[in-house]
Amino acid sequence: MTTATDGAAAPLRILILDDEPIVCKRLKPAFQKMGHEVETFTDSNAALARLREARFDVVVTDLKMEGADGMQILNGAKDSAADTQVIVITGFATLETAKESYRKGAFDFIAKPFKLRDILDCVKRIEDKRRGLPTEAER
């Protein structure tokens, strides 16, 4: 098992936004276990405000929410720091929303329900990319 503590990699700063608390509740400790720093939000406007004042390496956001939706969060994250990687998670996945997410610069698009392992692997790929390591697909 490889973790963020291996090698010289610094822990990632991750923001999780989902209006369903259960998603934040389960993802936060999973990322913490990988050695990362995590902040969670269930209110999208609060998350957007936080993105304006602090820089995050990874943003995991739901798509459909009251207030700012996932696309606005994606834009907000990219406006704050262009190298912030955004993972979009949604229970209403369509080809169109997936295409739009990628066009706006999302790192990945994951349909709910998803395996915990899938999103951990996704963050691992971001970590590898930042460290200049070849990703699984490139190997």
């Binding site: 989902d18 369903e20 259960i22 998603v23 389960r26 993802l27 998670i89 229970g91 209403f92 709910k112 329900p113 998803f114 395996k115 915990l116 392992r117 999103i119």
Partner: peptide, 13 residues
């Protein structure tokens, strides 16, 4: 299978 804890899901699911 979602009961087993392998999946992240929410009420919408």
């Amino acid at each position: 299978r979602a009961l087993g804890g392998e999946y992240i899901f929410d009420r919408a699911f």
